[in-house]
């Protein structure tokens, strides 16, 4: 006989390694694809976005300063933990996206594989994107990629886990820190990802996850002067021009989104790894 009451979960934000409620005290109803009740998620406000940016900035020094090898190990460990929560991710992805369990299984597996794929890149990026530059004279010049800084990520709206992993992993693999606004109507896999990150070795603040209304939060992220880059993957099409304009005021690097959401199951290339790095070129006054 089972007359115990199950413990209902309170879904919260993930900022600076902690799980705060929204400063605004608001929440909103998350529904499954058929309109049934799934959960109440925290509805983040502009002040939550601001706190997330502060946390991301604070974490940037440590994360960008870690060795590429160390970042790879940390990210690989996240993949291990994702694997451990596989069943939960399958259930949430299936409910959120309205897909069959079998399809959800392959989506979750693809997401974990995607994470591992990006984890492997951390100590190879410098070799691929860096160069020793030919110069006319007995000098030595070389270029290395460095992280851009704090990256604001508007996560894809439809693909709640695979899409999310595909945009977040490259940002942090290259040493940036991220403030992620989740899919508005499908935030549950992102919330579970935050629990994975909190129990992994990723330092608090490297990834900050805010749930809520994308249209309300995105302009604050785009105009924030302490955000260095913006990924528009999940931006509503009607807002993209406005967001790009706001980002231009503080000369942010912007990764534009395609008109329709891409097929995230396709094998990724280096474009997202290349999007948020800055080339530093060093000139040696003497060749070797």
């Amino acid at each position: 006989m089972s007359d115990r009451l199950s413990v209902a979960k309170t879904y919260k934000l993930y900022i600076g390694g902690a799980f705060p409620r929204s400063e605004s005290g608001r929440s909103y109803v998350v529904r499954d694809s058929k309109g049934g009740f799934l959960a109440n998620a925290a509805q983040g406000s502009r002040k939550d976005v601001r706190e997330a940016v502060v946390a991301a900035r604070k974490a940037f020094g440590g994360w960008s300063g870690a060795t590429a090898y160390n970042r790879g190990q940390v990210l690989y460990r996240v993949a291990e933990l994702l694997e451990g929560r596989r069943e939960q991710f399958i259930a949430e992805t299936a409910a959120s996206e309205g897909i069959a369990t079998k399809k959800a299984q392959s989506t979750v597996d693809a997401a974990i594989d995607r994470w591992v794929w990006y984890a492997g890149w951390t100590d190879k990026i410098a070799t691929v994107l860096g160069a020793s530059n030919p110069v006319a004279g007995p000098y030595f010049s070389f270029s290395v990629p460095e992280p851009t800084g704090v990256v604001g990520v508007l996560a894809p709206q439809a693909s709640s886990l695979l899409g999310l992993v595909s945009v977040v992993a490259p940002v942090i693999a290259t040493g940036n820190t991220a403030v992620v606004i989740t899919s508005q109507d499908r935030p549950l896999p992102a919330i579970t990802l935050s629990e994975v990150l909190a129990t992994s070795d990723v330092p608090g603040g490297v990834v900050n996850i805010v749930t809520g209304r994308t249209a309300e939060l995105a302009p604050w992220l785009a105009s924030h002067a302490d955000v260095n880059a913006l990924d528009l993957a999940g931006a509503p099409e009607s807002m993209r021009a406005e967001l790009e304009g706001a980002a231009a005021d503080t000369v942010k690097r912007v990764l534009r989104a395609r008109a329709t959401e891409p097929d995230w199951t396709a094998q990724p290339d280096m474009s997202r790894l290349r999007a948020f790095v800055e080339s530093k070129t060093v000139w040696h006054p003497m060749g070797v």
Partner: peptide
């Protein structure tokens, strides 16, 4: 200015 400022400014 209506948006958050940062240490670059």
């Amino acid at each position: 200015e209506g948006h958050y400022s940062g240490p670059d400014y």
